[in-house]
Amino acid sequence: MTKKIITFGASSSTNSINKQFAVYTASQFENAITEILDLNDYEMPIFSLDKELKNGIPELAQSFYNKLGTADLIVISLAEHNGAYSTAFKNIFDWTSRINSKFFQEKQTLILSTSPGPRGGLTVLEIAKNRFPFQGAVIKGSFSLPSFNDNFNSSEGITNEKLKSDLLEIIQSIEL
């Protein structure tokens, strides 16, 4: 039976390296169909209780929540902005958590990060590893790809054989 993966880069950049990495990683799973989400399709007013009281929860938050609910596996690659989530992702996170605090809906989740630098977004990855389970994510693995421009290209994916092998080992450990 074919399983469904929902994947996205947690960034609103049109050339997001995290989206590239998330899509690549999702494509490494066998017998799965992948739906790619773009955070730009879920742009909403900045979350505040006042806005929620006045206008309710935006339809886009419900749509994002519903999409996550269709997944057998969620693959997210987190952009690191000043040591934390990107504002685009954090805003979706905040609105969607108003629908259900466990908005990942107990779905298997693979969390990733990458950046042009040698730490590969490790700070935001650690935040997510500690936070996402409270939001209903069942973390099945995590992986940071350092120095994206040196270790990844669009035609081959991960070019560093050790890093590629490490990621594939995580992927193979996840049962879909």
Score class of each variant (00 low, 15 high):
residue 3 K to P: 06
residue 3 K to D: 04
residue 3 K to I: 05
residue 5 I to L: 10
residue 5 I to Y: 01
residue 5 I to F: 04
residue 5 I to G: 05
residue 6 I to S: 08
residue 8 F to M: 03
residue 8 F to P: 01
residue 10 A to H: 03
residue 12 S to P: 08
residue 12 S to Q: 15
residue 14 T to K: 15
residue 21 F to N: 01
residue 21 F to T: 00
residue 23 V to F: 11
residue 25 T to F: 10
residue 25 T to G: 07
residue 26 A to T: 05
residue 26 A to P: 10
residue 27 S to D: 14
residue 31 N to I: 04
residue 32 A to V: 12
residue 32 A to E: 07
residue 33 I to T: 14
residue 34 T to N: 12
residue 34 T to Q: 14
residue 35 E to M: 14
residue 36 I to G: 13
residue 36 I to S: 11
residue 37 L to H: 04
residue 40 N to D: 08
residue 40 N to W: 08
residue 41 D to T: 06
residue 42 Y to L: 04
residue 43 E to V: 10
residue 44 M to V: 02
residue 52 E to Q: 15
residue 54 K to P: 10
residue 57 I to N: 14
residue 57 I to P: 04
residue 57 I to G: 10
residue 59 E to M: 11
residue 61 A to Q: 07
residue 63 S to R: 15
residue 65 Y to V: 10
residue 68 L to T: 04
residue 69 G to R: 12
residue 69 G to M: 14
residue 73 L to S: 03
residue 74 I to R: 00
residue 79 A to E: 04
residue 82 N to I: 04
residue 85 Y to S: 04
residue 85 Y to N: 03
residue 86 S to C: 14
residue 89 F to I: 08
residue 89 F to C: 06
residue 90 K to A: 12
residue 91 N to Q: 06
residue 92 I to E: 01
residue 92 I to N: 01
residue 95 W to I: 02
residue 97 S to T: 15
residue 98 R to L: 02
residue 99 I to K: 15
residue 101 S to C: 15
residue 101 S to A: 13
residue 103 F to R: 05
residue 108 Q to G: 00
residue 109 T to P: 03
residue 116 P to F: 02
residue 118 P to T: 07
residue 120 G to N: 07
residue 126 E to L: 11
residue 128 A to W: 01
residue 130 N to F: 05
residue 132 F to A: 05
residue 134 F to K: 12
residue 139 I to L: 03
residue 148 F to V: 01
residue 148 F to C: 05
residue 148 F to T: 00
residue 152 F to S: 00
residue 155 S to D: 09
residue 157 G to R: 05
residue 158 I to G: 06
residue 160 N to V: 11
residue 163 L to C: 02
residue 164 K to I: 06
residue 168 L to C: 05
residue 169 E to Y: 06
residue 171 I to R: 00
residue 171 I to W: 06
residue 172 Q to D: 14
residue 172 Q to W: 05
residue 173 S to R: 06
residue 176 L to C: 12
residue 176 L to A: 03
